[in-house]
């Protein structure tokens, strides 16, 4: 545990933070990319994330297997996504509003059922040590990478390929760009959107399980500090691209590590402002990447928020 690395601690902590903190953002935003590509927006992923964190932790504790927890979280997220997808398929039902309602419901249910699981200790997800080549404990710690992070990275590539090269991807894009065109091709847009939202929900659930089962690795009512919501914002500035979403999540994780890292090298003034860095950063990027006409490049044309 020795070795003072001075100011290098800041960039190193940010790399470590990017890897540690980004995974929930990554999963939620990858899921939301797919959902939004189909022309729907699900703002309720924050609730799904929190419920996934609870369900994952509870199941991991009860079964003794962290992976069972991840499965449970994905399933719970899938159900929330299905509910969102089905409700929004009813005519005149607003997807943004339903998202807000499900955020409330998901969080409420998670806290309701999560009470007995605040205290127990559930098994953690395993991590892979990619920092074996270094003698510095700081480097080793920063590069202790969770399997889910790698899965997420692979998923980003796979989804990008899927969107571009496969029939499923084409279907999604058609539905997202025009319901009428989709119908003309014999595709049922409602069904595609329900499935896309369910998929997004499942990924958000996994993102939640990462929070409770790896980092910070415990279930409590303050487990999420808005990760689910921010991830939805990240999708917009990732321009609905899975690869961009990966980098956006990394950037955001790194910004989140800035506050504590600066304090550890002696920059101690105004830490609240440093803690707000991720939010400010997202807002700035949103402002820069939006355009007056509202017609964002790459935006699915059926998406309510860009209309």
């Amino acid at each position: 545990m020795n070795g003072d690395i001075g100011l290098w601690a800041v960039p190193l902590a940010m790399i470590g933070g990017a890897i540690r903190v980004s995974t929930p953002f990554l999963f939620v935003s990858l899921g939301e990319v797919i959902t939004e590509r189909s022309g729907r927006i699900n703002l309720g992923l924050e609730g799904t994330l929190v419920f996934g964190a609870m369900a994952g932790y509870a199941l991991a504790y009860l079964t003794g297997s962290a992976w069972a927890g991840v499965g449970a979280a994905a399933l719970a997220g899938l159900l929330f996504g299905l509910v969102h997808g089905l409700l929004c398929s009813l005519p005149k039902v607003n997807d943004i509003a339903i998202g807000i309602a499900l955020m409330l419901l998901g969080t409420g249910l998670a806290f309701f059922f999560g009470k007995p699981f605040i205290q127990p200790v559930a098994p953690d997800l395993p991590a892979i040590n990619l920092g074996w080549w270094s003698d510095l404990p700081q480097v080793q710690a920063a590069l202790r990478v969770n399997v889910l992070f790698l899965v997420g990275a692979a998923l980003a590539v796979a989804l990008a390929w899927m969107l571009r090269k496969t029939r499923i991807g084409l279907t999604l894009r058609v539905v997202g760009d025009s319901s009428d065109a989709a119908r003309a091709l014999g595709i049922r847009p409602a069904r595609v959107r329900i499935l896309a939202t369910a998929f997004g929900g499942a990924l958000a659930g996994i993102g939640g399980a990462y929070l409770s089962l790896f980092y910070p690795g415990s279930w409590n009512e303050g487990i999420s500090s808005g990760q689910g919501l921010i991830a939805v914002a990240l999708v917009i500035f990732a321009r609905w691209s899975p690869i961009n979403a990966f980098f956006a999540a990394l950037l955001f994780g790194a910004a989140g590590a800035l506050g504590p890292a600066l304090q550890s090298v002696g920059v101690t003034q105004g830490y609240y402002l440093f803690y707000a860095a991720p939010f400010v950063l997202t807002l700035i990027v949103l402002v820069l990447s939006s355009s007056k006409s509202g017609a964002l490049t790459g935006a699915p044309r059926e998406l309510s928020i860009t209309k």
Partner: peptide, 16 residues
């Protein structure tokens, strides 16, 4: 605030 507490702890460990 769970995530900040974890980050702070890691930053302390990083600082030795």
């Amino acid at each position: 605030m769970a995530v900040k507490e974890a980050e702070a702890t890691n930053a302390l460990a990083d600082a030795g």
